[in-house]
Amino acid sequence: MAVSLQVIYPVSDGSTFDFDYYLSTHFDLVGEHMGPHIAATTVTRGVAGGPKTPPGYHAIATITFADQAALDAAMKASGPVMADVPNFTNVNPDVLIGEVVS
């Protein structure tokens, strides 16, 4: 069964997020270190939380893996990716690992 890893960057007072760095440099690291194990990626930039409501999240990255073994292998290789987070944000991201059901 496919599994997903979602990395969720919430907006809070004083939080910062460099989207240009994230898309170029950070995702290059994701591809380099975790890429062989990844089936698909989607990055969503927060633009609104509803009509006339600011977004609650800077971004959500969804990374899909063929199965738990692929996710486990990617996580073992993720050290340089994790170390890069302070280079684009001061947010401590939330993480959700789940089964892809649809």
Rank of each mutant, 00 (worst) to 15 (best):
R45M: 02
V11A: 02
T89M: 12
P10N: 07
F88E: 01
D67P: 07
F19I: 09
K76R: 13
A2N: 12
F19W: 11
D84P: 14
D28W: 04
Q6M: 11
H26G: 02
P54T: 10
Y57P: 02
A48W: 08
D20A: 14
Q68T: 12
L5P: 01
F65D: 07
H33A: 07
N90D: 00
I60E: 10
F88G: 08
I8P: 13
T53H: 05
V47I: 10
D13A: 13
I38K: 03
I63L: 13
A66F: 05
V100T: 09
M1Q: 08
V47R: 15
P93R: 14
M75Y: 08
D18K: 12
G14L: 11
V7Q: 09
M75E: 05
L29G: 06
F19P: 04
V3F: 01
G14H: 15
N92V: 07
A59V: 08
T62F: 04
G56R: 10
I97V: 15
A83W: 03
M82S: 07
G79V: 13
D94F: 07
D28L: 03
F65M: 08
F88T: 10
M75F: 11
M75L: 13
F17W: 08
V30R: 03
A66N: 14
G46Y: 01
G98F: 09
P55N: 11
I60D: 10
A59N: 09
A40T: 06
V85A: 03
A70N: 01
A69H: 04
A59I: 09
F65Y: 15
D18T: 09
Q68R: 14
V100G: 04
D28M: 04
G79Q: 05
M1W: 05
F19H: 14
S12G: 13
